[in-house]
Design a protein around this nucleic acid. Sequence first.
RNA 1: GGCGGCGUAGCCAAGUGGCCUACGGCGACGGUUUGCAAAACCGUUAUUCAUGGGUUCGAAUCCCAUCGCCGCCUCCA
Length: 492
Amino acid sequence: MTLKLYNSLTRSKDEFKPLVKGKVGMYVCGPTVYGHAHLGHAKSYISFDILVRYLRYLGYNVTYVQNITDVGHLTDDADQGQDKLDVAARKEHKHPMAIAEYYTRSYFADMDELNCLRPDISPRATGHILEQIEMVKILIEKGYAYESNGSVYFNVSKFKEYGKLSGRNVDEMISGARVEVSPDKRNPADFALWKKAEPNHIMQWSSPWSMGYPGWHIECSVMSQKYLGETIDIHGGGIENKFPHHECEIAQSEAANGVQFVRYWIHNNMVTVDGQKMGKSLNNFITLSQVFSGAHERLTRAYDPIATRQLILNSHYGSPLDFSDASLHSAQSGYEKITEAVKTTRKQIANAKQGDADTKVAEQLGELKKKFEAAMNDDLNTSIGLSVIFELVKLTYSLIEKPETTSATLIKIDDMFSLLGGDVLGIVKEIYPETNQGDDEIIDELVKTFIEQRAQARKDKDFAAADAIRDKLDAIGILLEDKPGETIWRRK
RNA sequence: GGCGGCGUAGCCAAGUGGCCUACGGCGACGGUUUGCAAAACCGUUAUUCAUGGGUUCGAAUCCCAUCGCCGCCUCCA
C-alpha cells in the first residue's frame, strides 16, 4: 500500500513517487505578511503540515520550503492597485519591512501554537530580487516575455500549455474579465513579471527595465527552483491560487527551464465562517489569536489551538470547512477527551502491574495502525485517521479498567498515541503541563485552602458547607473536581 | 457569462458500485461512579444517504432532470 495523492494537474488520485528515491522536495505558497494569520491560514498550513509529517513518517527525507511574501503585491488590478504592505506601512507609520517582520513573527507564533512544524527553509521574496530579475531576463531572451513602458509581461500566447492546471483557456478569461486591462499589455491575459514603480512607491528596486518591483507570480518560480531544483515533487497552495497564480508559475518556470515544473499539485480548499466566505467587510473575519483568546463576538469562549487543529483534521483537506462557534466547541470537547485518555494512560503506567505486554493488545494495536496508514495513504484521510485515535481511546479505557493490564501494555498504547496522534497528526503532546501551571501560585494556594476547608466539611458530613464553598468558587470561575483521594481545580 | 465543488442523523463528518441495517466526533437521553455534583467510563441515538426518474442482479456511490448551497474567474490560504 502506497501513498496516493489527488493531483490537481492530472485530476486524479496518483500514486506518489518522488523524482529521487527517498527524497521529497515540497514547496508551499506562504503568507503575504501584512496582517495577522486567520482561520484560512490555519486550514492551509495544517493540511500541508500533515503532508510533510506523513511523508516523514513513511521514511522520506523531505525538504519543506515555504516562502514569505514580503514584497507587497497589489490590492487591485495592476495599474489601479496599491501595494498591500505599503498600505499597511502608511497606516501604521512604519517601514514596510518593519510591517513584514512584525507579521512574519506573528505568523510563526500562530503556526507554532497550531503545532505546525517549521519549514526547513522560509525564503523571503525581497531576499531574491536578483534571482527574479535573472529569470525575467531569461524569459525575454527566450521570447516568452516583452518589455513595455518599463514593465515586463509574460506573453501567454507563446506558452501553448497555459491553462493546463486550471482548465481554462485564454478566450474564456477575456470574456469574463472584470477588471480593466493595462494598455501596456499586448494581450489581456498577459501577466506582469516586472512592474515599473510609481515614484511614491516605497518598495522598489533597480532593474534593466525600470525602478520597480517583481510581479506576484515570479517569486515562487524563482525560490522553489533555487532551493529545490527545476522540477519539484510537490507544490501546495490554496485552491483560490490555482488560477492565476499557479498557472502563471507553471508558465514561467517551464518556459524558462524547458522541463516539467511540478509533478504533484496539491490544493487545499477554503474556509467559511458561519456558512459565509470570511471577509473583513462581513464582520466574520477571525484571526487565530482571536480564536485562541476567544476575543471575537462570534465566539463564546477561547479555544485550544490544538482543538482548532483537530477540527481541521476532522474533514478532508480538499473539502471546504465551515468554522462556527459550535464546530469549535465540538472539536474542543473531542480534543479534551483524547488528551484526558493520554494523560490517564501515562499516569497508569507507573501504577500498573509488572509483566509482559499483552500479545492480543499488540495485535489490536497493529490493526489500528494498519487502518490508520490505509486511511492516510488514501489522499490523507485525516478524518479516518482521527477516528482511529478515538478507537485507541476506547481501547485504552477498557484496558485501564482491568487490573491484570501491565505497564508494558500501557506503554505500547502510549507509544501508539505518540506515534499516530503525536508525530503524524500533531494533536497528542509529548508532555502535558500541570493543570494549573501558568496560574499565579498565590491563587493556587488560596484555592487549596478552600479545598482543605471543604474536605474537612465533607469529612464532618456538613455537605451544606462543603457545597457552599464549591458554589462560591464556581461563581468566580473555578471548578472543583473530586478525584479519588484528592480534589483538583481548574478554571472554567 | 465561464470553471469547479457540495447536499449523508439535532450538529460536524467518513464512505463514492455489493464487506453500508453507512467509520468517528459533538450534542441529547439512560446507566455506572459520587454525600450531591463535576470529570470519567459504558450504552442508546439514520433499514437510510436533497428530490424525481433511469442504468444495474445490486446504488449513498454511475447517468439524466429538478431544487438548494458554496467557491474561483481581482489581492487572498
